[in-house]
Design a protein around this nucleic acid. Structure first.
Length: 500
RNA sequence: CGCGGGGUAGAGCAGUAGCAGCUCGCCAGGCCCAUAACCUGGAGGUCGUGGGUGCGAAUCCCACCUCCGCAACCA
């Protein structure tokens, strides 16, 4: 049995879950479910990133302890994933003991390897905020919160010898051992290496809310350095070595393109230093704009995933988000398009096809499955090939296209065969047609399952295949699983039409 | 100035050398099994601009115009 370990980034609790988080997480869930379907042993990790001065500040502003604040906000993410039917195997919080222990072990490993050294960090420090702030944050040279000029401050930090590892990483990327996808992102990363990057500081003296450097109590691990390690602590590094060894290295780290540098360079460098294998694939998907505008709080165009679930249901939201533009590229989401696409693809497409086929089975054969027919056996096998090829290279949009084509093919078949006429003239042919249509629906349900698990289950139920998971994948994608004489059920609307 | 992405039918997007495609919308037919759903046909594009290479370019090369993202502490 093959293993498949997939991750999303852990999301910063300072933010509320928004549609961008949902996009990444849903995509990861689709891949995770697909691999489970194939029989792989899957570990799907997501979680929340909870340390750092920003969280501490937000907590204080909300008059809460940092831990309280994190508990509440982390719960929001968990709730949204719940509503979106996300099937993660672990939800890792960086404030958990499991994470802390793993981080300590990892940092000690780095220290032992000689890749950490002490040096001075110099930056702009605002005494009001009690933290370093960036030049970008300044307003007319002043801290926007305290209207005070920051002072240049030096503090001792630990640094990681990034430069030592870059040549080796470049080699691994070029050889394909470390795959950066899509292809253009790979070039970008290689470009970054060529530009030259400096060693980075991995600790802070002035920050309080975080994990202490195990070999120096006065230093706190810099938040994103520690956050990256979630990918190993989340599967048991430093706690459950058996599970860790089973699943590491990750088969794919999935994320949005903004954080690719950390995943493609900093993280692999630290892993090399610690003597751990590198993830196989770093996949960065694109950003989307909403109605042509960048998603931003000030513009107020941020879409709340829960509101979408309320309107469309979790299956449809999953489908709609992933079908907006090619996976990996940037794209635009027109909010008004959701209803239109819901109606055309889901209500008129999959929903209507299921409904018309099951209703004909009921009408012409009292819901009893007719004798088997194998007209589409080869064709379907070909479609499954395409489907698997697309999944293999993470082209979720292509998978959706394949499903749509198959759906539309079945609709065309109904039209060509005209079962309502056959009912009067040729019962034998009618039986074949209905069998082929029922099997087609079963295949559609299977294809749709990773994307829309609830609807797939519902279709299987109508087909009297509630126990479909007792078959393995190879059996399921074969033609002719439905047995004659079995009863099928008439369907209720899977996707009720929405009014514009 | 730097790095990266884009400019293809009314809208949103595929297509990286060989007669310009998809979805939605629009128009005209058809059908009646189905969620007023489904099927067929049609209209609609000088593929940002100018040059170059090729038998042949949306697709390669050069220049330009234009939009957008990133640019070290930001998950």
């Amino acid at each position: 049995m093959k293993k498949f370990y997939i991750t999303t980034p852990i999301y910063y609790v300072n933010d509320k879950p928004h549609i961008g988080h949902a996009y990444t997480t849903i995509a990861a869930d689709v891949l995770a479910r697909y691999h489970r379907l194939k029989g792989d042993e899957v570990f799907f990790l997501t979680g929340t990133d909870e340390h750092g001065s920003k969280v501490a500040e937000s907590a204080q502003a909300a008059n809460k302890s940092p831990q309280e604040f994190c508990d509440e906000n982390s719960a929001k993410f968990q709730m949204v994933w719940d509503r979106l039917n996300i099937s993660h195997n672990n939800f890792l919080r960086t404030t958990s003991l499991q994470h802390k222990q793993g981080v300590e072990k990892f940092l000690n490993k780095l220290k032992e390897s000689g890749s950490i050294y002490e040096s001075d960090y110099q930056g702009l420090y605002c005494t009001g905020c009690e933290r370093f702030i960036t030049e970008k944050e300044l307003l007319d040279g002043l801290c926007p919160d305290h209207k005070k000029a920051p002072e240049v401050l030096k503090e001792k930090n630990y640094f990681f010898k990034l430069k030592d590892y870059l040549p080796q990483i470049a080699k691994l990327i070029n050889s394909g051992e470390l795959m950066i996808l899509p292809e253009n992102k790979k070039n970008e990363v290689l470009g970054l290496i060529k530009q030259g990057l400096d060693d980075f500081s991995i600790s802070r003296e002035s920050v309080k809310w975080g994990i202490k450097i195990p070999f120096n109590d006065s230093q706190i691990t810099y938040v994103w350095v520690e956050a990256l390690q979630n990918y190993i602590t989340g599967i048991g590094y430093g706690a459950d070595e058996e599970n860790f060894n089973k699943f590491w290295p990750a088969d794919i780290h999935l994320m949005a393109k903004d954080i690719i540098k950390f995943h493609a360079l900093y993280w692999p460098a630290m892993l090399l230093a610690a003597g751990l294998p590198l993830p196989k694939v770093i996949f960065a998907h694109g950003f989307f704009t909403i109605d042509g505008e960048k998603m931003s709080k000030t513009l107020g165009n941020v879409i709340d995933p829960e509101a979408l679930v309320d309107e469309f249901g979790s299956d449809a939201v999953r489908y709609l988000l992933l079908s907006q533009f090619p996976f990996g590229a940037d794209g635009d989401v027109k909010a008004g398009n959701f209803v239109i696409q819901y109606n055309s693809d889901l209500a008129n497409g999959l929903g209507n096809l299921t409904s018309r086929v099951l209703s004909m089975a009921e009408k012409y054969f009292d819901g009893v499955v007719p004798e088997k027919d194998f007209e589409f056996s080869d064709e379907t096998a070909g479609i499954w090939h395409q489907y698997e090829d697309a999944m293999k290279i993470f082209k979720i949009d292509e998978v959706i296209e394949i499903i749509r084509k198959f759906n539309s093919f079945a609709d065309g078949y109904v039209e060509r065969q005209k079962p309502w006429q056959l009912a009067k003239e040729d019962k034998e042919q009618l039986a074949k047609v209905i069998y082929n249509l029922l099997e087609s629906i079963r295949h559609l349900a299977l294809m749709v399952y990773p994307i829309m698990p609830d609807v797939a289950e519902q279709i299987f139920k109508y087909l009297n295949q509630a126990d479909w998971k007792s078959h393995n994948f190879k059996e399921l994608i074969d033609w002719g699983v439905l047995e004659p004489a079995a009863k099928v059920e008439k369907a209720k609307a899977l996707f009720p039409r929405l009014e514009k």
